[in-house]
Simulated assay, not measured.
Amino acid sequence: MQEALGCLIARAAVRLGGRDTAARAAAALRDARTEHAGAACGMLTLGPVATYLDEAEACAGTG
Rank of each mutant, 00 (worst) to 15 (best):
Q2W: 02
A10K: 00
E3Y: 02
L44G: 04
G63C: 11
L53D: 01
A13I: 06
A39D: 05
L29I: 06
G42W: 07
D20A: 14
A58M: 14
R11W: 06
C59M: 14
A60D: 07
P48N: 09
A39N: 06
L5Q: 04
R11N: 07
D31T: 12
R30I: 13
T34R: 06
D54L: 10
L46T: 01
D54A: 10
A10N: 03
A25C: 09
T21R: 10
Y52M: 06
A58R: 14
G38T: 03
Q2H: 06
G17K: 10
L16Y: 13
A40Q: 06
A40H: 05
E35I: 03
L53S: 02
R15A: 12
M1E: 08
T62R: 13
T21D: 14
R11H: 10
R15H: 15
R19E: 13
D20S: 14
E3V: 02
A60I: 07
G6V: 00
R11M: 09
G42M: 09
C59H: 08
A32C: 05
V14L: 04
C59N: 10
G6P: 04
G47A: 12
Y52E: 03
R33Q: 10
Y52D: 04
V49C: 02
R30M: 15
D31R: 11
R15K: 13
V14I: 04
I9D: 01
A58L: 15
A13N: 07
V14Q: 00
Y52F: 11
E57T: 08
V49A: 01
M43T: 08
A40G: 11
M1A: 07
G6N: 03
T45A: 10
E57S: 12
G18E: 11
C41H: 09
G42H: 09
V14C: 04
G17S: 10
L46W: 01
A40W: 04
A23T: 12
A56T: 04
R33I: 05
T45P: 12
I9H: 01
L44M: 13
R24F: 15
A26I: 04
A22T: 06
